[in-house]
Structures are given as structure tokens and as C-alpha cells.
């Protein structure tokens, strides 16, 4: 129960942060990615603020050691740079660049806009299921 409440509060903070920073607006995200056009660097500030707070938090978790491990992780889950990592990141980037949504903002946008975020989220879930079906052995 306690975990559920923590997760709910964390989700609210996350969704609020996405809305405040307008990351729920794909046009805003695409303007960041469009370096050759009328560039809007806002997304870098969002990432910067979030990374800063998290960088201060990691040492609290790991008794002073950075890059401590959380449940279900091994050292390799931080350092193991393999082909699926690079290929997967590249595929994710293509989808992100096509629409301007990554998973978090797409879920938040379900309550902000009409059908488009829903179509995107359903396709994303389908993609995840397809991946898990094809590469079940990995997990």
C-alpha cells in the first residue's frame, strides 16, 4: 500500500513536470530535435533540471557511492553495451522523431488531447508485446 501511494505521488510529480515544461506537446519536442530549423532548446533544460536532481539523489541511495544498483539490476545492466542497446535506441529515436512523443509524455497526453495520443500509446504497447514475443528468451 505504501509503495502504491509513493508511486502515485511520483507519477503525479512526473506528469505535472511534463505538463509544466510542455513536453506533452509534440511540436515542442520536435522543435528541440529540429536543430537545422527554428531551434527550441527547452528540452535540454528539462533534461538538465531532472538530471541535476537525480544526480544529487543517487549518492543518498547508495551510501555515498554513485551508480549503486537497484532491485533486479546487475553491474552488467549498467555497463553492458551490446547490439540490442544501440539498435533499440536507434529505433526508439526514429519513432520519437516521427511523432514527437516518447512513452511518458504520450501517457500524460491521454488526458490532454483527443484520439492521437491514444492511437500512439496503443501502437507503442503493441510494439512492446511484439518485442517480448519475438525476444522472450532474453527476459
Amino acid at each position: 500500500m505504501r509503495g502504491n501511494i509513493i508511486a502515485l505521488v511520483a507519477g503525479v510529480l512526473f506528469g505535472l513536470g511534463l505538463a509544466v515544461s510542455q513536453m506533452t506537446n509534440p511540436a515542442k519536442v520536435l522543435s528541440f530535435l529540429d536543430v537545422a530549423g527554428a531551434w527550441d532548446p527547452s528540452l535540454a533544460f528539462v533534461m538538465g533540471g531532472a538530471v541535476l536532481v537525480m544526480a544529487l539523489s543517487w549518492p543518498l541511495q547508495g551510501r555515498g557511492r554513485c551508480a549503486s544498483l537497484v532491485a533486479g539490476e546487475s553491474r552488467a545492466s549498467l555497463t553492458d553495451v551490446d547490439r540490442p542497446l544501440v539498435f533499440g535506441a536507434a529505433l526508439f529515436g526514429i519513432g520519437w522523431g516521427l511523432v514527437g512523443y516518447c512513452p511518458g509524455p504520450a501517457v500524460s497526453a491521454l488526458v490532454l488531447a483527443g484520439l492521437e495520443p491514444l492511437v500512439f500509446v496503443l501502437a507503442m504497447v503493441a510494439g512492446m508485446l511484439v518485442h517480448d514475443r519475438l525476444f522472450q528468451a532474453k527476459k
Binding site: P84, L85, G88, G95, F120, G127, H131
Partner: peptide
């Protein structure tokens, strides 16, 4: 939207994470 969503779904599972 469909193609982008599929790619984001497959890519994030394969690559083990997204922007967050």
C-alpha cells in the same frame, strides 16, 4: 502515429529504456 508508436515500443524494450 501507428508506425512511430510501434517503433517506440519495440525500440525502448530492445534498448532497455527511453528518455526517462
Amino acid at each position: 502515429l501507428v508506425v512511430g508508436g510501434l517503433l517506440v515500443g519495440i525500440g525502448t524494450r530492445m534498448g532497455g529504456g527511453c528518455t526517462s
